[in-house]
């Protein structure tokens, strides 16, 4: 029996799925993109442009990308990626169609944001790496034999609260009279949480780096230096202890001799502004004349005794004699 006729008629029914191109198409299966680098033919372009929707030819033909790099008819307009091995082993939400595994894209597109910075390792991670301990992630759920169900390891109804929540607890024979097993379990859990929190904070501090933090010794020295100059004489007449080191204070800093015109102008103007502001400032009552500070003059004349005693002295020439006369 000759079936070649039947086969030929069957083949004639189907249109071909391959396309011939001078330059093979560049296919980026990862991004589902095809680039046809063949130059656009001017004649067919202009011909297509006369059709109503410019390039929307009534029946544009589609090249089909396959694993064997074959393409269907010319005047390329699209690509179809069905090449990658469709996975049958993986669970498929829609059993009607296969899921295609996509390779990593070959086209490089710029990122939206910079690469994430690696997190600094915690103390435990450092230790684990040094010892070669591989991290085993704990499941959030844990199997409960009594309930015959999965329960939370921590959190709501967590297994770590089992002892403190149970209604009956065995008490050892030599237990204290105030022994409260649920409180004990609760305290133990609280301590573990607090310890973890403390370690977390330490990790954060370590991750931040030494930075500007001072050691306790430095802080002590600084406090001591402050107290030494905190007397009325700024520490000048204080008793020196034996073996006490000389105070090493801040070094004087001078402005650079040569600065930019801008900054010099700015500082001078600030100085002038200050002077100007002082004249505008209202004088204190009793200040009186600009040229003579009366209060200061009175203090000077009375040798610090004040205006009343000066007046008494001035009038005291007669008064004093009176007094003497009394004697």
């Amino acid at each position: 029996m000759d079936v070649s006729d039947i086969l030929a008629s069957q083949a004639a029914k189907h249109k071909s799925v391959t396309v011939e191109k001078d330059i093979p198409l560049e296919v980026d299966t990862g991004f589902l993109t095809v680039t046809d680098l063949n130059p656009i033919d001017k004649e067919s372009y202009e011909c297509a442009h006369t059709v109503i929707h410019s390039l929307d030819t009534p029946n544009p033909k589609v090249p089909v990308k396959t694993s064997k790099n074959t393409f269907s008819p010319p005047r390329a307009t699209a690509c179809k990626s069905s090449s990658p091995p469709s996975s049958r082993s993986q669970p498929n939400p829609h059993p009607t169609a296969p899921i295609a595994q996509l390779p990593t894209p070959t086209t490089l597109l710029p990122r939206q944001k910079p690469l994430p910075k690696p997190k600094p390792p915690t103390k435990w991670e450092q230790f684990a790496r040094a010892k070669g301990i591989s991290h085993k992630k704990k499941d959030k759920k844990e199997w409960d034999e009594e309930k015959q169900d999965w329960v939370n390891r921590w959190g709501w109804g967590g297994k770590n609260k089992q002892v403190e929540a149970q209604w009956l607890t065995e008490v050892p024979a030599n237990a204290d009279i105030e022994h409260d097993p649920s409180k004990e379990a609760r305290d133990a859990r609280r301590t573990r949480v607090a310890k973890n929190e403390k370690q977390h904070m330490q990790n954060l501090a370590r991750a931040q780096g030494p930075g500007d933090r001072h050691t306790p010794k430095q802080e002590n020295e600084r406090t001591l230096a402050t107290t030494r100059i905190s007397t009325a004489s700024m520490g000048k007449f204080d008793k020196k202890l034996e073996g006490e080191k000389k105070l090493r204070g801040m070094k004087r800093k001078f402005d650079p001799a040569e600065t930019s015109v801008e900054s010099e102008k700015k500082s001078n103007l600030a100085l002038l502004g200050k002077l100007d502001g002082e004249s505008k400032r209202p004088r204190k009552a009793g200040g009186g004349d600009d040229t003579l500070n009366v209060r200061k003059a009175v203090r000077f004349a009375s040798k610090g005794q004040g205006g009343v005693s000066l007046a008494r002295k001035a009038g005291g020439a007669s008064g004093g004699q009176k007094g003497r006369g009394k004697r």
Binding site: F31, I40, Y45, A100, L102, L109
Partner: peptide, 29 residues
């Protein structure tokens, strides 16, 4: 244009969801 429409990196894709083509063609050079 690739970044706008197709910039996401996927590991796998449901083939039934591939239903449209965006074609960008230039005039003759």
């Amino acid at each position: 244009l690739m970044d706008l429409f197709n910039g996401e990196v996927l590991e796998q894709i449901h083939l039934a969801g591939l239903e449209h083509v965006i074609s960008v063609t230039l005039g003759p050079t």
